[in-house]
Amino acid sequence: MNAAVSVRSASRWYGDLVAVNDISFDLGPGVTGLLGPNGAGKSTLLHMMAGLLKPSSGQIHISGEPVWQNIGMYAQVGLVPERETVYPFLTGWEYALASARLQRLPQPEVAAQAAIDMVELGDAMHRKMGGYSKGMRQRAKIAAALVHDPHILILDEPFNGTDPRLRLQMTTMLKELGDTGRTIVFSSHILEEVEHLAEDVLVIIGGRLAAAGDFRQIRRLMTNRPHAFTIRSSNNRALAAALVDRPHVTLVSFDSDTMEVKTTDFGAFTEAIAPLIQSSGVELHELQPADDSLENVFSYLVAQ
């Protein structure tokens, strides 16, 4: 049986710039998060999957059919683009209804109303979208993408500009859609967004697929990577002397009034540091991770 989405050695380059580099994966029912920092190639990959960009090499299939120049596939695919452009002169209702009619649905009014209800846009459905907030426009775009009940839903940074209520509601809705056999793929550069929603994750960095699979395994890999902490205390040298005895501490270095500690075991370090400070009799002024940016996390994953 064909995978819902199949990406095989897909690359996309613009002149000398390689945006997506030789990526392969299959997606089945459920929610998959496409995680990566800004500029990693997430949107390029999603646009290729949505048939809006031609792969420079490789192939992308949806339900066994190539996506490029295949307009028939849009009957089973919904796309929520990142760019928040909607027709400002249409109301939310007109937008969803237009989407239903363009999908040639037998009962477009019923489908449009169901989609509007699903994203809870009922109160504002008869207002022109030009006056919508960012979150309301996002709801309208999702309603238009869901109106034909697609098997595959592609969302590019769907949580951008959304308030916590909409975020929670969208998370619940997308989970439910995933649980009912639809294939949902969404991109994000925020780890927590992916953590709350996706069972499977694709980590993309520098156009390459850095990791793919179960989110918990990848999260563990991220957590167990070497970590660095910056510490400022009343007596850095005394604290350093206590720390170097620990097997998971690999390096302690000083820089004026701060010191940097590197550890191979995040969990063991965070458990040990508080009693160690107490027993050393030093006063802790500051303790913070030194390299916890997403880019660092991704760089580590790529190296693995």
């Binding site: 949505a50 048939g51 809006l52 307009i71 028939g72 596939m73 849009y74 009957a75 695919v77 919904g78 796309l79 683009p81 760019r83 452009t85 909607v86 027709y87 989407s99 363009l102 999908q103 040639r104 238009a144």
Partner: peptide, 15 residues
């Protein structure tokens, strides 16, 4: 230019 064309281009409409 303004990106609204994606609405039409992601529908099963002959070009």
């Amino acid at each position: 230019e303004d990106g609204t064309a994606v609405f039409l281009l992601t529908k099963p409409i002959e070009r």
